[in-house]
Nucleic acid binder design. Structure first.
Lengths: 140, 140
DNA sequence: CTTGACCTTCCAGTAACTGGAAGCCACATA
DNA sequence: TATGTGGCTTCCAGTTACTGGAAGGTCAAG
């Protein structure tokens, strides 16, 4: 299987597959003409990585997960630890973004959005804290 | 005001302030000895950028916001548009992460996490869809 | 006059690709 | 057989927003 077909089979781009090879994540075979060649086992690994990346796992996590994937004697606890850590990171990110959304949606809601220069959003960014002490806590 | 004091006054690092200068975002003065020098107006701009970055605005957004900040005749609608667009991006990101959290927390919850190799997380990443059709939709 | 803290510039690295150029390879058609 | 088209190769650069570090200049204090 050439790289183009492997790309179609894995929903990855040829570029990405070459990149994964360059970082030694998934390395396929080579034909005598220099073309990369992918067997089923490679395709499975690439798809595995594609799904893991789709779940937001870092390349380093993918590397660890791949080696567990190949390990017949793995303990599921190891997999679970990686996943739990990633889950916590996701939850932290969600919290952070929810905080930003809070602040931003308040600012946006209070801005007239017309032709005049007066703007609570600008005031907020300038450090002119207008209303409540909540706003201050949001911006510091 | 030297860059170190400016850094303290703005909660930015000297490196970051130099970086902002290198991309022409906020450029201070220079003393004859080559040292950067920051007046109040510069400090205000830097703090403005610091707050905007803290709210997740991109550097490009900061550039646009700064020029509106300096524009006496700005329309608040322009500010609001930038903020609204950013707010939408944040909300999209939150949704995406919530989806990942859903999938991942299900997988983690069903993994025994012991010494045995059997692992629903691995199954999910391998494309072995175990339970409901919900899981399938989550992984595709 | 030296020490230490500051400042300067410049280069490289981060994460995970993506775009593009230059050139080889394979196959079908005229 | 020439040629066109598409796919393959490598390599370099760019993306975002900094951060680390090296090599060296400057300044105030003792």
């Amino acid at each position: 299987m050439n790289i183009g077909d492997a790309a179609k089979a894995t929903s990855l781009s040829p570029k990405t597959i070459r990149y994964y090879e360059s970082i030694n994540l998934v390395v396929g075979d080579r034909l005598t003409n220099g073309y990369r060649n992918y067997a089923d086992a490679h395709i499975h690994k690439l798809r595995f990585v594609q799904r893991a990346r789709g779940l937001g796992f870092s390349i380093d996590d993918c590397r660890a997960l791949l080696s567990l994937y190949e390990d017949q004697n793995r303990a599921s606890a190891e997999v679970k630890n990686i996943a739990k850590k990633h889950l916590q990171e996701i939850e932290a990110k969600i919290s952070e973004l929810q905080g930003l959304r809070e602040t931003l949606s308040h600012l946006v809601a209070h801005c007239a959005g017309d032709h005049r220069p007066d703007c609570p959003i600008m005031d907020g960014l300038s450090g002119v804290l207008h209303d409540t002490s909540e706003d201050e806590s949001r911006l510091h």
